[in-house]
Design a binder for these strands. Structure first.
Lengths: 320, 320
DNA sequence: GTAAATGGTGAAACCCGTTTCAGAGCAAGG
DNA sequence: CCTTGCTCTGAAACGGGTTTCACCATTTAC
């Protein structure tokens, strides 16, 4: 393979000049520039990117940590990140963790080793102290509230939005409200839990543990929720579902079991995914592609630590 | 930052010896090994991966080209690739093309520049001659029939599987069969088209252009199909839908419009996604994660060109 | 007319590992 | 005792760019 030296020799200039042409630096005479260009074309010369990376200490690669690729929430988020990455000439390295801590650490290590310029963690599993060990090595951006921490983030205030949704359901006359979330221990779930508890406290309702459903991620998880609902003596009259997919799954099962929505069971989704629109599910809109865009921009403008709160919007449809 | 030289100095050995320790080469005395390990620990030394890449000419990065990240088909495919990548210590670089040709070319260029060790193209948009320009630079793996070409692939014979599905519908008494696919011009769509035409020819049915629906990718696309079906004087009695998502969308709209499935309209999906199971959609199962796994393995064992055909399986449920 | 700024150029240092190769020391084989 | 052959080691070449710095030649400024 031809390298920069060969080109320099062919064009009768120094490697410095070739480098300048390659990088569009000023101060190269038109003739030499032309000679270099010619040589490059003749040899079909291609820069060795790894050498560039080594030299510059930058790779134009941004790491993205997600638990699953096969989920519309993360699909949209990555789509948002990806679109902005294209615009800025960055590429994405995907880390699918399946919520395994060591996979997240691997991503952090890649940051440490300078193989990626920044790391966006869309759903964190590691403890804070581990993350904080790595902030020295490069920008880490999170998709959860990091206020007070020296880490940029774009996030949704899940306490606020959950409260909003609960009040909405309450106003619609619901007193027996349950909810479905993904991981029991995630930051978001904890925020939601405290919103839920505060809500119950405010309205003097008692907490029923079986009104809370964990590990709800996908459409098909709706089925199990339905099974559990059917068996209850005193089922909730409304469910706040932290994902439109799951809400859609529940709704589909309701139709099969002839449970009328919203009369017998009100459903409220999250995200405002396309499926929510088609199935007329009342939901809280999260502009996920916009979130992705912001996350990316924070990753490349890491000198400024910022915390961007994203507002959610209640979309009234026909399941409440 | 400390580098290998510093470590060598500290441990009182040569850089070669340090390198040997780092790479677990044999023939290093126990004492020197220990000294090096100690120095590494003391300095919290981290190899500069870019230097390793440059030196070795390998990055342990595999490129993956997909049109959208936000689609269950590609989600599952990437999941399969990703899981196998983890096992083999590779990372994935994601190229979301949105079916833009230049984005695919960018991925090919990264292969040329040695920034990735191999490239998996899950849905091709570029012409063959462009792809073939780049095969010299590194392994390119495709997810479509490349028989006769010098390019490895894992693929579904869409002619065969579409024919199978059409015959199945025919056996069930359907004579007015339409179909829905994604891109009009993709290889898969062309194979399906010819299967469809051959089927019509065999049974002496005439081709109705309005029985064919293009640009069907997502759940929400079901709605438009429904709108078009409603307006037809002589609508098809069965639809072969090249994606469970779209089938699910159509099915949901059917329920809204009180169109009985399968009596008034039979639906047959593709992929056997979870949603097909929940909604009881008859479908052709494609083991997407297995496909992903094979694609990855072909990418790293590129010395052997192979063509793996994946069998599809008809899953009978309640929409036909 | 002289000083300062600007355009243009290349040698050499730098980024940081891996790998080749030559050689030393020592034990086993004949 | 001599030859292999194995263990162990480091100097130096190599991968291939970017960047600093010194320097010369023109312009422009005053």
């Amino acid at each position: 393979m031809t390298n920069i030296k060969d080109i320099a020799k062919m064009a009768g200039v120094s490697v410095t000049t070739v480098s300048r042409v390659l990088n569009n630096h000023p101060y190269v005479s038109t003739e030499k520039k032309a000679a270099v260009r010619l040589a490059i074309e003749k040899c079909n010369y291609q820069r060795n990117i790894n050498a560039v990376h080594l030299s510059r200490g930058q790779t134009f690669l941004i790491g993205v940590v997600i638990p699953f690729t096969n989920h519309p929430y993360f699909g949209l988020l990555v789509e948002g990140i990806s679109n902005e990455a294209v615009k800025n000439n960055y590429k994405l390295v995907l880390f699918q963790t399946n919520y395994k801590e060591d996979r997240e650490v691997e991503a952090l290590k890649m940051l440490q080793h300078k193989q990626i310029d920044a790391l966006i963690i869309c759903s964190r599993i590691c403890n804070w102290d581990i993350i904080e060990e790595y902030v020295a090595y490069g920008p880490i951006i999170l998709c959860e509230d990091t206020l007070g921490k020296n880490i940029s983030s774009t996030y949704i205030d899940h306490y606020k939005s959950f409260s909003k949704a609960l009040e909405y359901l309450h106003n619609k006359g619901h007193h027996k409200i349950g909810y479905c979330v993904g991981r029991k221990t995630g930051t978001n779930s904890k925020q939601r839990e405290s919103a839920y508890k505060d809500f119950l406290y405010k309205w003097k309702e008692e907490l029923k543990q079986n009104y809370i459903f964990y590990e709800c991620f996908n459409f098909e998880d709706g089925e199990e929720i339905m099974q559990r609902l059917i068996k209850m003596n005193d089922p909730p009259s409304a469910l706040l579902v932290a994902s439109d997919q799951v809400a859609a799954g529940i709704l589909t099962c309701c139709k099969e079991h002839n449970i009328h929505v919203p009369n017998e069971l009100a459903l409220m989704g999250f995200d405002n995914q396309p499926i929510a629109k088609v199935m007329n599910i009342t939901t809280l809109e999260i502009p996920l592609t916009a979130v992705g865009r912001k996350l990316f921009l924070q990753a490349i403008n890491s000198s400024i630590i910022s915390h961007e709160e994203i507002a959610v919007k209640l979309i009234e449809r026909q399941t409440v």
